[in-house]
Each structure stands twice: as C-alpha cells, then as structure tokens.
C-alpha cells in the first residue's frame, strides 16, 4: 500500500519510541503516507492503523484533529497562507488578494485544473519573517509582498 521507502521512514519513526508505544509514530506515519499519496484517503488511514496495530477510528481521530492532514484531495501545490495578527500587520491582506486574483480561487478552494489549493493558516511560529506561505506543508516561503508574490507563484510551476 505504501512504498518501501515510505515504510522505511515509518520504521525509523517507530524506533524512536519504547517498543510497546508504536502508536506514538502515528502522526509521522500519516504525514509520510500523505506525502506519498497526496492526501489521506480512507485506505491510507486503514493501512496506517493496521501497520501500527491501532483501531482505525483512533487513527482517523488523529488525522481529523491536526489541521495539516488533508482528508480530501488537494491540488498539486497546496498553499497555506498565515493571516494571523503579525502577518496581518505586516501586510498579508494584500498578498492574499493578489494570490486569489491570480489563481481565481478563495480560501478552501482548488483551481479547476487541480494545480493549486489555497488554505488559510494559523500561526506558523515564524512571524518575524512574515507574511508567510507554506508550500505543500513542508516548505516555508517568507517575506512575501504584493510585489514579489507573482514571482513566487511562477516559481512553483
């Protein structure tokens, strides 16, 4: 169900915890599954549950609690923009307006060609470098402005 490489990564996570606490690796296992598959389909959640010896519902509970897991398909480029107070003061509203105009979608939407999903994020803990955009959950783009956001989007193509 998951690639050998993904399983090796999950095994490295499991090894961090006491032998009787495999469940501690569930957050990482879901992340690794999501990176490979693009989103967390029910089959992926079931697979992780079986692999870690957990009830499926317990894995689903984790997947639905933390907001970086995608329980529905997202675009090839998932863009999460922090709109919280510091980024707001540092000008994120203009950046969001530019992104939305350029992509033609609002928060929580995906472009018809399936290339971009736009999400509103909560604090990334990097406010000094704001406004911020998280690309596919793992790459943080910093100091965005209405002027440089075009180049940022072009760079993702």
């Amino acid at each position: 169900m998951l690639s050998t490489e993904s399983l090796a990564q999950i095994d490295r996570e499991i090894a961090k915890y006491p032998a009787d606490q495999k469940q501690s690796a569930v957050m990482s296992a879901l992340r690794i599954a999501q990176v490979e598959k693009g989103w967390l389909a029910p089959e992926s959640i079931e697979f992780v549950a079986t692999y870690l010896g957990m009830p499926t519902i317990a894995v689903y509970e984790v997947a639905s609690f933390y907001n970086m897991y995608d329980l529905r398909p997202v675009g090839a480029h998932k863009l999460t923009v922090c709109t919280n107070i510091s980024c707001q003061l540092q000008g994120v509203d203009a950046v969001v307006a530019k992104i939305q105009a350029k992509l033609g979608i609002g928060f929580g939407e995906t472009t018809p060609d399936g290339r971009f999903t736009l999400k509103e994020g909560e604090c990334f803990g990097s406010c000094g470098d704001g406004p911020l955009c998280l690309h596919n959950n793992h790459t943080l783009h910093t100091r965005l402005t209405a002027d440089n956001v075009d180049a940022f989007l072009e760079g993702l193509k």
Binding site: N84, I85, S86, E122, C123, F124, G125, S126, C127, G128, D129
Partner: peptide, 11 residues
C-alpha cells in the same frame, strides 16, 4: 510547539 501568534524565537 511554538504557535502562539507573535512568537518565533524557538525556531
């Protein structure tokens, strides 16, 4: 787990 808006020292 530094996610309080305005906080970015631990990073």
């Amino acid at each position: 787990d530094e996610g309080e808006p305005g906080t970015f020292k631990d990073r």
